[in-house]
Amino acid sequence: MIGTSTIMLATMVLGASRRGAGIGRLVVPFVAMFAVLIVGFSAALVLPAESATSPLWFGLPRRAAVILYGVGVLPLFVLPIAYAVTFESLTLSDEDLERVRAVKRARVGA
């Protein structure tokens, strides 16, 4: 559980890291999502089993709701939006793209 969550988030950090600049503001959503995974899986393991009369959370038994809505749905609203919001500053700016295209022009010219 901890290993799976760590590997997934570590892979994201590896992809998002910029040489010499780290992951910047992305540390917030990444830490939050790591916590969601750990808390979600842990809750599924430690919470008591439900019975026929147990309360439902948004139509599902508590532990299933934690897995489906917490692990399955919550990151959907956080990670893609974090990616979009930080795209120009942390992923690909116009200057980055121009540097890459300049290398190609130099390569073709040579």
């Binding site: 990151p75 990616y83 992923t91």
Partner: peptide, 16 residues
Amino acid sequence: LPVSLTNAMGAWVLAK
């Protein structure tokens, strides 16, 4: 279930 993570992960790791 990993779908909530994998597309953002793929974007950061591979897309660009």
